[in-house]
């Protein structure tokens, strides 16, 4: 059974530009997307910043009214049946906001439990359980203002589970967390999946989507450009090898020259501390390395690796090397 159904959903924002001669500019954040999420599925929405992930989640959680199209969650229309839907879904947006910092974690949960009409007898048992689930049982009585970012994120997860929702929307829940905090939070998501919750997770971390999601929709500039299982998405680049150069600064004219080569499909650069990784997708694999090196004269180069493509490479190819 389908837990989420999205049909031709579109959302346009209007922004005013100029001071004297004001003009209204229309920005299409979500452009005619359609997808379905099945009961108990962990579905990923993967895309770069500004791709339309959060806007999609806000429409599905009744916080934004779509410009056109239709969306149903648990069979309820997100606009017409918004009030009925709210008690059956939960959501988390990445970041530290949305909590009452002067109250303790426990008091925040108690307050939100009342807003969701959870019976006090139930919430008295459920709040300690949830604090334990997210690893905050020993800090629950402390004020939220003293929590780390990761603790606040985990408190948000506990908040969203107070009313035991059937469908969860997790919008970049690990953003800004340190590796340990992110790993702990991913474990919480896995536990929720084991409880057969339907989860829509947005992220721009490829390994996170790969590790957690059963199916992934890749979204870019408001449009879904691919929808498949992680393994299925990797086949998008199965004909290509990835050549990875460790470099210390690459001029833009060299990047342009590399992109112009007929045997080069995608060129992207990732920052890695003091150095960068120059990633080139090419069907020629290691055979292309000498030609590529000849175009990078004068550039300091460290290791060169030729490897099989990953989900991240598939993603980079899909979004045009702009990751």
């Amino acid at each position: 059974m389908k837990a989420i159904e999205v049909r031709n959903l579109r959302r346009v924002f209007r922004a005013t530009i100029g001071v004297v001669r004001r003009k209204i500019k229309e920005i299409v954040a979500v452009d005619d997307i359609s997808f379905e999420v099945y009961d108990g599925e962990l579905f990923g929405l993967l895309g770069p910043n500004g791709a339309g992930k959060t806007t999609t989640v806000k429409m599905l959680t009744t916080m934004l009214i779509p410009t056109s199209g239709e969306a149903r969650v648990l069979g309820l229309d997100v606009v017409r049946s918004a009030e009925a839907l709210r008690s059956r879904i939960g959501f988390v947006f990445g970041g530290e906001r949305g909590l009452y910092w002067r109250l303790s974690g426990y008091d925040n949960l108690r307050y939100f439990a009342s807003l969701y009409h959870v019976d006090p007898a139930v919430s008295r048992k459920r709040i300690p359980y949830l604090l334990d689930l997210v690893g905050l049982s020993d800090r629950g009585q402390e004020k939220v203002e003293g929590y780390s970012r990761g603790m606040k994120q985990r408190l948000h997860i506990a908040r969203t589970l107070l009313h035991d929702p059937q469908v969860l929307f997790l919008d970049e829940p690990t953003i800004g967390l340190d590796p340990v905090g992110a790993r702990e939070l991913r474990q919480v998501v896995r536990n929720l999946q084991a409880e057969k919750k339907t989860i829509l997770l947005t992220t721009h971390y490829m390994f996170e989507a790969d590790a957690l999601c059963q199916r992934i929709a890749v979204i870019d500039k408001g449009r879904i450009i691919a929808l498949d299982t992680p393994e299925g998405l990797k086949t998008y680049v199965k004909d290509l090898a990835v050549i990875e150069f460790e470099v210390y600064g690459v001029p833009s004219n060299v990047l342009e020259q590399l992109r112009a080569q007929p045997y080069v499909h995608t060129v992207s650069v990732e920052n890695r501390d003091q150095k960068q990784a120059l990633l080139i997708h090419s069907p020629r694999g290691s055979q292309a390395v000498p030609d590529l090196l000849s175009m990078m004269n004068g550039i300091r180069i460290g290791n060169v690796i030729v490897r099989e493509p990953t989900l991240e490479d598939a993603y980079v190819r899909l979004v045009g090397g702009e990751a």
Binding site: T62, R86, S87, R97, Y100, H117
Partner: peptide, 18 residues
């Protein structure tokens, strides 16, 4: 401003009651 209005609105309780 504190980001809690979204959370309030998306609960079954009318904002006016809060």
């Amino acid at each position: 401003w504190t980001g809690t209005l979204e959370l309030m609105v998306s609960t079954p309780t009318p904002v006016s009651v809060i």
